[in-house]
Design a protein around this nucleic acid. Sequence first.
DNA 1: TTAATAAAAGCAATCGATTGCTTTTATTAA
DNA 2: TTAATAAAAGCAATCGATTGCTTTTATTAA
Lengths: 346, 346
Amino acid sequence: MKNQKRTTIYDIAKKLNLNASSVSRALSNSSNVSEATRDLILRTAKELNYKQNSLASNLRKGHNQTIGVIVPRINQNFFADVIAGLEEVTYQKGYNLIICQSNESYAREVESVNTLINQHVSCIIISVSADFEDDSHLRNIIAQGIQLIQFDRVADNLATFKVVNDNELASREAVSHLIEQGYKRIALLEGPQNLNIFKQRRDGYVAALEEHGFEVLPELMIENAWTKELGAVATRKLLSMANPPDAIFASTSDFSALGVLEVAHKMGVVVPDELGICGYSNEAFTEITTPSITTIDQYSVDMGKTIANLFFQEIKSEDKDVVPKIVNIQPKLIIRSSTLRNKKPL
Amino acid sequence: MKNQKRTTIYDIAKKLNLNASSVSRALSNSSNVSEATRDLILRTAKELNYKQNSLASNLRKGHNQTIGVIVPRINQNFFADVIAGLEEVTYQKGYNLIICQSNESYAREVESVNTLINQHVSCIIISVSADFEDDSHLRNIIAQGIQLIQFDRVADNLATFKVVNDNELASREAVSHLIEQGYKRIALLEGPQNLNIFKQRRDGYVAALEEHGFEVLPELMIENAWTKELGAVATRKLLSMANPPDAIFASTSDFSALGVLEVAHKMGVVVPDELGICGYSNEAFTEITTPSITTIDQYSVDMGKTIANLFFQEIKSEDKDVVPKIVNIQPKLIIRSSTLRNKKPL
DNA sequence: TTAATAAAAGCAATCGATTGCTTTTATTAA
DNA sequence: TTAATAAAAGCAATCGATTGCTTTTATTAA
């Protein structure tokens, strides 16, 4: 059973007393084969259970119908959704996806890039790891003549195609909403600032506060409160302050927001009356917590589709050098109970 | 920039006035190259930014360090977790994953199988689609000399390596738990019976009832209540019966269980006092609903690792024909508030 | 019926890396 | 210093499909 020989075009050619080139042409449905021999070849191919060897074909043709994807974690909802969206489109076009996860490790990200270069993929789609250091590996992708599309977490200094969410806008809208609901002291839970998405969310937070004439208070901005646990820790600290915040924007994730909610419950702080909570990502669970959590939808599956379409429609089809382009997807604030309180007169 | 030539071993050989075979041997670190020339070659390779062409290498060597994966949906938590587990192990071994989603369509599953055969992957890991029809495409994988591992949703009649959960046991434990909590009329929400996992869960349900001397009532077994919406519809119907159930086991998914919970809330049925609810899969949200939902953990990430290890340790290493083996993973009943009521004396 | 043209099929090189075998070079033994 | 041996390097075929070019066969025009 093992290592048995597969049927090749030579087997078919031999059986029919033809040349392999005719078999190849018949199978690829190109010209210069008579109707009769084509039929014969196709029938024989089926009979011998012939399957093309894509390795050989791709090697000869000099391109590979494969796209590489590198994400921090495959089983994080946002990335799983993006990948599902990507697959949906690439499948239609007959392309395969090779998927790697960096596990938030820069070293592993670099290794994955190298593997994908070796595989001669025609495009690499990447969202960088949390401990992203420098972009030399990304530059190497371009140097090897492979298309590069960055998404979500992108390296700012590198001019490539990018598909991102307008994190600053979303953040600004979320904070503005909190202000409109009458919250006065709004805390921010932040992610690592070496990732541009978190910088942008902070920028949006600051912009909204300033826009409404609020003071920006460093003591209300907690770095690295990414997970549920860290969100909980940060909340405990914030709510124990002499002058505690009356709203917390967990700009890192909904998981962080969930940590906030649980601590509030435990400390007997009523949400949304005494504390407003806003998360980020529109995870499925935000709809079913008590109260449900206000959050930001990133249209992740659509983002995947957008990325794939960008490749097929704008990058691949062009022979001339294409000008890198940034697609900015408008995220949407989903207002739920955790921030909806009747506005009290001032 | 486009279609530029990459550095090959011939470029290196030419530059150093050597033969390509020496370059190849130096790069693969095999014998018959002097220390001096090896160093020279490695230095030059780095200098010219040489990257191996895996297509050519794999074609020549006759095997491909790639594993194909086909799942119904990439962004369904269970499958995303399994894939993450797979990737974790295959990455360590220098293997790549090509990932396809069937979108629960049999036709697409067949197509994906063919693509992966063409890619000459060394193994295909599959969980079949909901409208699985027959296993000829799977037999074809074997006929082409490619290893096949089925997981979770498997084709029973085909003897291959399989990694599954003991669905019957899990189901029996869940129903037994409900009975122990004093529930008397336990309804079952079922999935399509052409998938063996759902058949097994039904079997476990029936077995538990019979074990405890309960009657099996067909009117309490609702087919095709897979999603949250269908779970809600089924619940509405069940709770409107003259003699409604006092517990619902949503054996299809936690989403279905969530549908049950929401309808119960709306109809003013108190959970767990008047209605016990048990789901399946241990989705993240089951922990944070009110009340939290009793469910079954499938150890999905571990399952992925188990599958990958099976390939590397038992299948790949053996040269003799290996005997297919079924690995049965013990799922775990996670008891939460939705089924915990104080047992009332009969 | 012959010549001109078009269609069909074959030839051979190619994509890039690998590897069994042979030849050349370097090292050790006689 | 020469012969025997070992190490290093080169030669050439190979993996399977593709494709520009040439040759053969079939078709149409003269």
